[in-house]
Write a protein that binds this DNA or RNA. Structure first.
Lengths: 203, 203
DNA sequence: TGCACTAATTGCACGTTGTGCAGTGAGTGG
DNA sequence: CCACTCACTGCACAACGTGCAATTAGTGCA
């Protein structure tokens, strides 16, 4: 899965990284992010506070945790989708993976977000970086200049809107709804109505 | 415009409120929000640091500044739109006002956001509250249960996606594009493709 | 094996953020 | 004129986030 672990050093670093995230996730879900200090997270992961900040810029990022390398990962995944696939569907497939990849973390993440809705915002913030990368690839696929034509930015924005809406409604339902399934449904609803750039008029 | 100013006390409070926002906006646009401390903002507005925190929870909020009362304002505005108007168009009209109302502040706000993209995120965060209220009204208009049917949340998410996309592209163009006009165009593009809830199939 | 080299971790210091609390003074209403 | 309310203020304090230098473990080469 991971690009082969190169050495013991890198392996240990990943271990502390994971331990910090797990601790932040667990504590954040248990007591709410506001009542958890960075010191507690670091202690739970058995490292110093200073080390925490070498891995995450803030405790919120440790919980939301969309690292920079995921951007590349997502971009490559979108590039690998067949060229014949409609942009929105391609976006759905690769974004859908965000739910599946760290599926074990999502329940805790949702509980943490429930404790402080501002975390949901932080998450949407991290989407900005994703959107930028995705818009770039969509522009390649469609051959449109993203600075000239709003279509790439719009399709991507619509896809993330579906992602956000599914997150929000899943949260509103108190966890009774599956965010991933809701996301698929939302995209399907949009796909039925949205059309590719060539024909601006739907019918 | 404002619900009549009741007394001198309230008037003075609004004055300091405005002075703080103006100072934050000006300094943030000039030097970037990261290089401006709350103390500087407070000093520029000739009040104490503690007073600043009586008006805004953080310097970012002073710049982005979507107060709670605006939520009610926006909700009422949406309720006042004719029932025959398509949901997306109604959303466009009321959201469009966000650009016009404090039009004088937008140039400064854009420059501040340019200095630190995280501010754009903070702005999107504040949209969550707006979306919640708007979804509620859309649910009323369409007679759909927002917890049961994803349509209200989706239309609203799509509308704010257009808002966000227009903000982002306007920022990317370095201010050469008009965010408000771009917003209108984006919504028009979407409106041509999206259809009301009754008929899920566009044709 | 021995020896530089790199990088993760750590402690320390420091400025900044955000909040609770009590006091002051101006504005308000009877 | 007299309570009463409330914006503003200073103070203290916990927590956040970062720069810097030292330590220690892992890495690569002779």
């Amino acid at each position: 899965m991971e690009s082969d672990i190169v050495g013991r050093r890198e392996r240990k670093r990943l271990a502390t990284h994971h331990a910090l995230r797990a601790a932040a996730l667990r504590l954040g879900a248990e007591r709410g992010i506001r009542d958890v200090t960075v010191e507690e997270i670091a202690t739970a992961a058995d490292v110093s506070v200073r080390t925490f900040y070498d891995h995450f810029p803030s405790k919120e990022d440790a919980i939301i945790g969309f690292d920079a390398w995921r951007v590349d990962q997502l971009r490559d995944a979108l590039r690998d989708r067949p060229a014949t696939e409609p942009p929105l569907e391609a976006l759905r497939v690769v974004m859908r993976r965000l739910f599946d990849e760290s599926s074990g973390e999502w329940p805790l993440r949702m509980r943490a977000i429930n404790s402080d809705p501002a975390l949901l915002g932080r998450m949407f913030v991290s989407f900005i970086g994703y959107e930028r990368a995705l818009v770039e690839v969509i522009a390649e696929r469609t051959g449109l200049d993203p600075n000239d034509n709003p279509y790439p930015a719009l399709v991507t924005a619509v896809a993330t809107a579906a992602f956000r809406a599914s997150m929000t409604t899943a949260r509103a339902s108190g966890g009774s709804m599956d965010a991933a399934a809701t996301f698929d449904g939302a995209v399907a609803l949009l796909a039925a109505a949205l059309t590719p750039p060539e024909g601006p008029s739907p019918c």
